[in-house]
C-alpha cells in the first residue's frame, strides 16, 4: 500500500466526503468526473450522513492474508440515509444476529496494516445502531 495512495483516499475514507451531481442529484463516493446517470460533469461537495441500514451482508470465515487475523468478520453493503451505498465491515457483531434492514451508523476504524512496518490503513466501518 503506497503512501500517496493512502493520502488520496483520506477525503472519503476518513471524513465521508462525497459529491452530488448538480444535474440529477445522485451522490457518489469516491468523487467522479462524469455522472453515469445523466452525463453531467458538474458536482458539489457534500458530507455523507453517518446513519444507514444493511442492504445485504455476509460473515466472512476465510479472508485475504492481511485480514485473516480478524475472521470471522461481517461484511455488508450499507445504504446511507441519502441513498448512497458502500461496502464495509460491521464491527462488534459477536453474539448478535444481523438482519437485512437493520439500522447502522458509520464509525472510524483501523482497516488493515501493511506488515509490521508499512502504512496502516484507516477508514469507515459500520456499527449496529440499536
Amino acid at each position: 500500500m503506497s503512501v500517496p495512495k493512502t493520502w488520496r483516499g483520506e477525503k472519503y475514507r476518513y471524513r465521508l466526503e462525497a459529491v452530488k451531481c448538480t444535474g440529477c442529484g445522485k451522490t457518489y463516493m469516491p468523487a467522479r468526473a462524469v455522472c453515469p446517470e445523466c452525463g453531467s460533469r458538474d458536482f458539489e461537495d457534500i458530507k455523507l450522513p453517518a446513519e444507514g441500514k444493511i442492504v445485504t451482508y455476509s460473515m466472512v470465515h476465510v479472508g485475504p492474508a492481511q485480514m485473516q487475523f480478524e475472521v470471522p468478520y461481517a461484511v455488508a453493503i450499507i445504504e446511507l440515509e441519502n441513498g448512497l451505498r458502500l461496502t464495509t465491515q460491521i464491527v462488534d457483531t459477536q453474539n448478535k444476529e444481523l438482519k437485512i434492514g437493520q439500522k447502522v451508523r458509520m464509525v472510524f476504524r483501523k482497516i488493515q496494516e501493511d506488515g509490521k512496518t508499512g502504512v496502516i490503513g484507516y477508514g469507515y466501518k459500520a456499527m449496529l445502531a440499536e
Binding site: S58, V60, P64, V75, I77
Partner: peptide, 16 residues
Amino acid sequence: YFGATFPALYAMIARA
C-alpha cells in the same frame, strides 16, 4: 480494501 472477498460478494448476492 474493506475485506470483501469474492465469496463475500456472491454471498451478499445470495443473501439478498
